[in-house]
Design a protein around this nucleic acid. Sequence first.
RNA 1: GGCCUUGUGGUGCAGUGGAAGCACGCCGCCCUUUCAAGGCGGAGCCGCGGGUUCAAUCCCCGCCAAGGCUACCA
Length: 581
Amino acid sequence: MTVVTRFAPSPTGNLHIGGARTALFAWAFARKHSGQLILRLEDTDLARSTPESTRGIIRDLTWLGLDWDQGPNPKSLDGGDPYDRSSQLGDKGPYFQSQRHADGIYDKLVQKLLDEGKAYEEDDAVRFRMDRDIAFDDVVYGHIEVKAADLEDFIIRKGEKGGKLPTFHFAVTVDDALMGVTHVIRGQEHLTNTSKHAALCDALGFDRPQWVHLPSIMNSDGSKMSKRDIVKAARKAAKTIQNNSQHSGEEFVRSFIEQLRAETPKLKADVERLLPDSLLRADAIIEDGLARYLVEVKRSSSKPEKALAQLSQYADAIGADISKLITAEIDDALVGRIYLYLLKFPIPEIEVADFKRSGYLQSVVLNYIALLGWNPGDGTERFDLDFLVEHFDLKRIGKKNSQFDRVKLAKFNAEVLAEMEPAKFKSLLKEHFATYRPDYLEKLGDAGFELFATAYQARSQTLDTPADLGRFFVCSDDEIEYNDKAVKKNLTKNDGEGLNVLKQFREVLAGCEDWTADTLHGLIESFTAEKELKNMGSVAQPLRVAMTGNAVSPEIGPTLELLGKQTVLNRIDRCITTVSQ
RNA sequence: GGCCUUGUGGUGCAGUGGAAGCACGCCGCCCUUUCAAGGCGGAGCCGCGGGUUCAAUCCCCGCCAAGGCUACCA
């Protein structure tokens, strides 16, 4: 018997990390047994399914490097249409449940059940009779029995308001059987419902597939990993911002809105670039996000109603419209993303696209999620897709929900980046920056980027790390803020020892003609020896504070070279002036 | 509330009827011009209570906790 698995997401949002793992396991199992993987889109929820989500899911699966034998054609992303039947892969199509419904596939079978008295009409919907005990076997969770008394008749075809479409339970059962699926690999949230699917299989005369339920992936606080995390993070950020603001009340709202408005054009451009294919309508979201942000701020403090009234007043005073507040139906998580972006807080990674944006490699993401609920049994943790396919075994899937550990993922990613061929790292970094950090590429220039990439390869957890750590390379001189602790430790301590070194060394640098890392390094070395300083750090650390405001940078030679002579001298002067006050 | 499932260090996973291992994290030391990396060492676990047994983390029962389902969402 040929193995046939399927991945069947509903296109109501982008692919999240749990879905990615389900897809990975279904893919690995199919490949291991030289079987087939079907991608089927379950778009029977008229209200929530969107073509953007479909495209997003295909895009994210493709980014991960997973492929499928039947389903929408991934090539359709380039100007094509995934819904176009003639371009779909495989002969068991169509692969969208909306299309299958249009073909009458479900209605025919509903009628059959109706005729046989196994289902009945209620209002304008159709219900299936669950009138006997059901037992089934799950590959992971074992034998499960449910008593008839604990079961209820359930809807298999929605009424008018649901467009007479089949419900999820009916559509999956029918499609899995008709498409010849042998192994249904899916999330554990479907385990209880499987009794329904088993009963339906029996009633329709289908063979029951093997059910394989995967434990869930949870968040570090024990909650299910979901978009809610974004909302939570956004609220926290909102609170932090307000607590740190010198303004309060109306003054705060006013300054926040003014800042927002000033940044709106750039923001819109960024949002469109960073969140492609998402459900956003930028204008509405900026307005709406703003309003909600303000409400969250108020809500988290005291009486919501009073806060809303007050907010309304503020908004009127400055001519902002918060009427959308009540009416707009916009994805909260999306709004959360906007807040976080606006407020310059990190956005928690939930969806596959979030991990990409944060600079994780697809191979590492895949490797890490494979370890959630599965292991090869010999202690191996670092492996690639080939290894996974070779060793994949449903027997080794655990039953316990697992928490997603971003720290461990980051470590995996850092290791891979550090061991990578420098040329490869550079090209990946360039690609990442081209999409997410174009301003860095522009400021650094080609030669600068080479140095920059080299300097940060060993220090990067993700492809985005260099942007954070290396911001001082691209910011203007007067944006440098001096950290008190760093200043004290490296400059002012011992009667300004460090400051003195800095002043003296400035003159050495001013006379330097060959501005290269090696020469600069040599200058520091000889200066250290000449002045009988403790070690190179006695010079390098004060320089770091002057260059970065902090005491951390890549090696000092390349750092100075990349910054350029003029900038280095400017920053030293500015630092000496500022600190001496 | 009812039903289903799960319960090994902070997290992810091994493991066994006979005094529990690995990875990440954490702490300390070393190396070092900072950071990161690296090297060395350390703390910390079988949810609780009963049974069965010479012996239980492992088998049984109860409890507790967590997750899921209980939708014309999937």
